[in-house]
Structures are given as C-alpha cells and as structure tokens.
Design a protein around this nucleic acid. Structure first.
Lengths: 220, 220
DNA sequence: AAAATTGTTAAGATTTTGTTAAGATTTACT
DNA sequence: AGTAAATCTTAACAAAATCTTAACAATTTT
C-alpha cells in the first residue's frame, strides 16, 4: 500500500483529501504546517507528497526545494502561471489548482506512482502459465523461478514471440550457434528436451509441440 | 538536444508550438495525423510526445495505448474530467487544456524530461545489509565500514541502482575503463571477486550473482 | 516392417567464471 | 622528484556451467 503525505493547513480540505485517498487504498499521513512536514519527512519514507503552498511555518515552495527524491503534486489556490512555472521548475512533478476534481487528483496520483520503466512489462513474454523475463533471463512458471541457459532462453523466446507459428529447425539452429557452422540438429533436440523438462517439472504439462519434418511450435 | 514529436493536425497551433520549442533548444518533429505519427515512431526514438486528441487517421487515445516507453503530454481542447482521467490512466503523463500558456507548457515539458532518479547528493543506496554511501569509497555492511576502490564502487553502484536487473558485462566494462579501450573481461572478474570477498568477510553471505554468458546482478 | 525423424540420457569437450598472486601502473605524500 | 602505498591488470590455474556428441529408445511415415 502506497504511503502519501498530505501537507495542508486547511482542516476541511485536509479531511476531504484524506477520505478520498483512504477509500482508494492509500495510506495517508498528515502534516498541518511546513515545519511539521519536514519533521515527518526526516523520520519516514513516503511514496508521494500532496502539497499546499500557503502554509504556516515553512511555505510550500521551500519544501519543494528540499525534497529531491519523492514525487510532489502541488495543490494550490494560486492559479497564476508564474506560481505554476516556479513550482514545476524547482522540482514539483504536477500542479493542480483548487478547487479540484477528486477523480482527476486520483488519476494524477496514479501517474506519479506508476513505475517509470514500464519496459519490463513490455519485454516480458507471457503465454499461459509461462512468463519469460527479459531483464534477467529467467522463466517464471506459475510464478516459480526457473533458470534458463542462454540458448534455452533464445529458443524459447522465438517460440513465444509467435506462439501460433511453426519455427523451423533451421531458424532455431541459427540461434543455437550464431557463428559456428558446425551445428548439429541433434544439439537442438537436446536443448528442446531440456526446456521441456524444466517446464514439465513445474507444470506436468507439455508446452512445446514438434511438427514432424519442419520444426517446433507452442501447443495451443 | 532533446527530440520532441508534435502530433497535431491544426496547422496554426502546430506552428506556434514548433516555434516555441525551437527557440527553447529542442529538436522538433512533426506529424499531422495519427497514422503519420505511428510511422515516425517506428522509425525513430523520441524523448517526448506532445499529442492532440482529435486527429485524422488514428485518434490520440489510441496512440497513448500503443506508446509505452516515451512520456506523453496531451494537449487538447477537450476539457472534461472524463477525457483527462481516461488519458492519464491509459498512459499519458500530463494533460494540458487548450488554450495553454507557453511558459507552462515549457515547464511541464521539463518535468517530463528531467531525470527520474535524481539521487540527491546526500542519498545512499541501500540493499539488504548493504549501504553504499555516496562518497565514492565507503560501503557499510551491517554498519561496518568497508573501503572500496573507485572501480569497485562504480561497479557496485550500478548493480545496486537496479538490483533486479542483470547488468551486462559490457556495460560494467565501460565503467571499469572509461577511456582505456584495452579492458579485459578478466579484469572485471577480478574486481567482482574482490567486491564479493569484502562483503563475504562481513556477512558470510553472497550478494552478487553471475548470469552465465550475460553479466551480473544482485541476488534476491 | 523398414526407414526416417524425434526424444532422452549421460559422458566428454568446450566455454565461461572464480581465485590467487605477481608485475605494472597510478596515486599520495614527503 | 623520488618513494611508498594503493590500485589495476595480467596471467595461470581451478572450478563450474553449458554445449555437443553419441548411443539408444520411442515415435511417425511410407
């Protein structure tokens, strides 16, 4: 559950935000002055800060300059372009003017909290119970980690890229031995056999089908 | 110089944006329809996309769903909360309603382009019992100080920045010898071995895993 | 049933990695 | 500048992981 620090001195606005976030499954933490906020920030790590600008103690602009590693959304009645630009350039990640709509606030919070490198999602190949992780060359089978060798990984990747298509033996052979022209079909067979064994050990099912005389494909 | 793709069918707005960006030192690229945008996106990598929603060809909402690894700022005349929320939740990073102020647009562009992991100077990298101080040589292992050499520090830092990801041997080699092209893989192995030894002497545990044929990563 | 293809297994060959120590280079200090 | 200490690279060898080969069993096609 993500932890959000609300820095806002107006009690009624504070309560509205707090309730909105809690009903949407965030943990909320409250600061009613700039100085109180800094104390809390020293003690604990938060995932996001919602920040009012006009605060007793230290004002919002000062807080923005001090905080460098937590995303900040400014929530302010100040609607002038200068205020916006100053805050954004000095480190805030977003700026919403009051009065604001709850749904928009929630959406903008999600933008800040979602993982920056959605690369990983893009580059994992999913197929039934299998998930091939690109960034560490492992295969998740029903969320159990299984290590693949480099060639096993290359073979399975090509099969999973087009699960409905037959991959010819020759194409797969190119993967197994990129440069060594002395590549046995036998060797490929062993690799396939090893992959099947690893998957079978976890799922008791067959995932790779062999097409007689042509090559291999994923089972439907 | 950062490359920004402007996707907008209205010629006059397009020109205004283009001039604004160019006078602020961005390279601009132009698409006047959704389909044209997708063609350009296939050919080249951009740092940011400015996106109108109502486009000939494919509309903006579809483009948002297709693009996963480039920040998108929506620029639209549609001011309804529903439009905003939909775009933000389906992948846009910001949403500005027309007419917009040039200075605000520039500020919001900077927000998207600035590096996400601004590890402030004071911050340390923590991972399990390890804490890498940012003084370029100190590693705390269970709060015991251990001295690292400059390259050991650089290697460990890169491993700790993305502890779940494999760092390739080549990437690490670049660190070991920034300018000397005569960098042996052997040398890297020795450095890794030395780091492991220092950690092992304190914790009796292994922290660095080697991925055969690829590189290294932190153990989970 | 014979021939061809595929599947499995285990033993060697090969490649990559880990460790150590000595020599070369850089850095720090007087 | 000259010396000592720290660091880096190289080389040699040991250990581990992976790949290939080969033998044989199982399967499919003709």
């Amino acid at each position: 559950m993500k932890k959000i620090l609300i820095i806002e001195d107006d009690n009624s606005i504070h309560n509205v935000i707090e309730e909105l976030l809690q009903t949407n499954n965030y943990s909320t933490y409250n600061a009613y002055s700039g100085t109180e906020a800094l104390l809390l920030l020293e003690k604990e790590k938060y995932d996001l800060i919602l920040l009012d600008l006009m605060l007793p103690g230290i004002n919002g602009e000062e807080i923005i300059k001090k905080i460098k590693d937590i995303p900040i959304i400014v929530l302010s009645a100040k609607a002038s372009i200068n205020d916006k630009v100053n805050c954004l350039l000095s480190g805030a990640n977003d700026y919403i003017t009051k009065p604001f709509d709850g749904k928009e606030l929630l959406a903008r919070i999600e933008v800040q909290l979602r993982p920056k490198n959605r690369h990983s999602n893009l580059e994992t190949l999913k197929y039934k119970d299998l998930e091939l992780l690109n960034d560490n060359h492992t295969l998740l089978i029903n969320n159990n980690k299984t290590n693949l060798t480099k060639t096993e990984y290359a073979i399975l990747k090509h099969l999973l890229l087009n699960p409905s298509q037959v991959i010819t033996k020759n194409k797969l052979l190119d993967l197994v031995s990129m440069d060594t022209e002395d590549c046995d079909e036998n060797s490929l067979r062993v690799h396939i056999s090893n992959i099947r064994k690893k998957i079978r050990d976890c799922t008791k099912k067959e995932y790779i089908e062999s097409i007689w005389g042509i090559g291999f494909k994923m089972k439907e």
